[in-house]
Amino acid sequence: MGLMFKDETYRGDFTFYNSPEAIRHFPFPFHEDKYMYAVNIEPHTPGPKGSAYEFPIDIDEHYVSDMRDRALVLQEDPLRCQSLPHMITAEWDLVELLMTSMSDAYPEHFTLKRNGDAWHWINRPMGIENEFTFGDTSTLPYPPMEYITRQCQGDFCLLDQRDGDLWMDSGMVTSQADWSLDFDIGMSFKEWHAPVPLAHEIGVFDRALKFLLAMQIGRPVRRLNWTMTINPRLDTSPENYHKWGTDRTTVTPENVGDKVHLRVELQALWRLPRSNAIVFSIRGYLIKMRELVTIPKWGRRMPRVLKTLPPELAAYKGLTRYQDMTIDWLAKYDDGAPTSPGCFPD
């Protein structure tokens, strides 16, 4: 049985919502009743059936609408997808990773036939079919990274490994939480993380970098990151901040449940085989507060987490204006009962 893909929007009338299955699929990020920045990297191994971790690349009911929103973003601003010339080998590595992962996990939707370098790709939900020569860019309608990431949920960055550092030299970034690929492309690991508060001082990035430099092929890792977004908007880029920034002032005690969304990034990293680059995927998930509280454990835990958030982090994540209002709205779902350890619903 295949997925049922919904027709919904992430702008204008904002018709996005989660089905009950999608709510249970949501990668709730808080394993306890508080939050602090941590490296929290774990092996990206298959998780429970129906969870966002079941397959290496997660495709869900929002797939077709996500890809339509990405196409709209790229039409307005082609600089959201950029790649420095030396990354072409890594781009092809990414094509291989995504096509094999998607067709292995979802054979009813995606098919990949390989005969040496002659590849045949079928994407049924998007109605795409191409025969091309692996390694020959002229045989695809787009450059390889752009071609495949126009067909895969999540933002993608390709990190070149040189001189004991990782360099963000390629990316498809259309649904980011307030960072600009166009600005950050070419930066080293610590440079592109420069605006993140608190974490540098406690050595988070030193440890993370050392770990990532030693990543092995076939042993991907993942971590979760999170923020909050007003309205189910995927494109919360700095480029368009002057257009969406006012959203943050539209929250009222009455509309918190529908307007305020928890936005979770499932960040997964793979060592790529022939380029020795690393792919850094940032797969975003949105859930309305009204949807979140349908899982009682999450409804209890969410306000507790928001109350313990250090003010620097709240400011960095842009929550300051509506943090208290959200805590107040959530309070009626927290009966004070203890919560069970771990992120999954009881």
């Binding site: 030396h86 990354m87 080998t89 070149d160 490994q161 040189r162 030693a214 092995q216 092929i217 380029s275 020795n276």
Partner: peptide, 9 residues
């Protein structure tokens, strides 16, 4: 395998 002597592309 691990690569500590990669090609600088």
């Amino acid at each position: 395998p691990i690569n500590l002597f990669p090609i600088d592309r």
